[in-house]
């Protein structure tokens, strides 16, 4: 079965299948090379990159919760320069779209990141993480304000006019459709939907939070219903392609996202269930389609009966 997908638009992104590994759950890809053929995946999104290396948050940074997990890693990474110089050359980018997830606390830094990566042949697309605080404006999250989200999108669009630009939306908002429209109007080529849900876990014996940062991002199967709702609302609000993610743990889960309108999907926390999960998902998708009697993803996409 032909599983290929194009995130269509001015700067189309061609994927051999709709399975993309989500940022922060697949390292830089090389960590998972022993468990499968990286080039069999649709694309990989690498761990979030910032301008300067970041040492991240104190530990504990992760906590297992029922059907999910919390993380407050604090975007530990080696910085964009180290990534470009040392890690990117080790990735099979000629055969697999490598998407760089970028993170900054000022639009200007986002633009600088965009400019550095725009010059890299090995980068197929940029994914902008707008679930981060705007330091200049009292720490309000870019992704929670349509104007700020649009400003970041415009800044990266201008700095990297040659790259497919995907913006990753936060579910921690009142009206996700409004943010989606603002970002689409500002020049995004596609949207990734959703980032983690803000959450907490508590150890009742020690009376302490289970994360040093107290608050973290919830991911995993527990958030799938929220993610589906967000993808559904966003698909109805914009005309650019939407990549769905949030708790996908089986081929059938992935098809649910396609049904509500997603063009492709990302798998995140399930990469921790077992390191070969994403590779297996690519193999399982055609079987899941056959079971439903459909012959292409196109037949399913956006065909939710309401």
């Amino acid at each position: 079965m032909d599983l290929s997908v194009t995130l269509a638009g001015e700067r189309p992104l061609h994927l051999k299948n709709p399975v993309i590994t989500a940022s922060g759950t697949f390292g830089y890809g090389v960590e998972f090379a022993p468990y499968g053929d990286l080039t069999s995946l649709g694309a990989i999104v690498v761990k979030g990159l910032s301008l300067k290396p970041r040492s991240g948050n104190p530990t504990p940074r992760i906590a297992e919760t029922t059907s999910g997990m919390l993380n407050a890693v604090g975007l530990q990474n080696d910085g964009v320069e180290n990534f470009v110089r040392h890690t990117l050359p080790r990735l099979p980018w000629q055969e697999l779209p490598v998407i760089a997830n970028i993170y900054a606390t000022e639009p200007q830094d986002f633009a600088e990141l965009g400019a550095i990566l725009a010059a890299e042949e090995g980068i197929a697309a940029l994914e902008v993480n707008i679930s981060c605080p705007n330091v200049k404006q009292g720490g309000i999250l870019f992704g929670q304000d349509p104007r700020l989200a649009a400003a970041v999108t415009k800044a990266v669009r201008k700095a990297a006019p040659n790259k497919h630009l995907m913006v990753k939306l936060s579910p921690n908002v009142t009206d996700i459709a409004a943010i989606a429209r603002a970002v689409a109007d500002a020049g995004a080529d596609s949207l990734a939907c959703i980032n983690t849900l803000s959450g907490m876990a508590v150890d009742v014996r020690s009376r302490r939070p289970r994360l040093a940062n107290v608050i973290g991002g919830l991911s995993g199967p527990a958030i799938k219903p929220v993610a589906l709702r967000c993808v559904w609302q966003v698909c109805n609000a914009v005309s650019i392609p939407v990549v769905g993610l949030g708790g996908i743990a089986s081929a059938e889960d992935a098809l649910e996202f396609i049904l509500v309108g997603a063009s492709a999907v990302q798998v995140g926390t399930a990469n921790f269930f077992r390191p070969d999960f994403a590779f297996d998902l690519v193999r399982e998708l055609p079987k899941a389609c056959e079971k439903l009697g459909v012959h292409s993803l196109e037949e399913l996409r956006g065909s939710l009966r309401v």
Partner: peptide
């Protein structure tokens, strides 16, 4: 020893 989600270096939860 530490709590780990992945064991392969990706989750960055087990750092020292």
């Amino acid at each position: 020893e530490n709590k780990m989600a992945c064991g392969v270096g990706a989750c960055l939860g087990c750092v020292c």
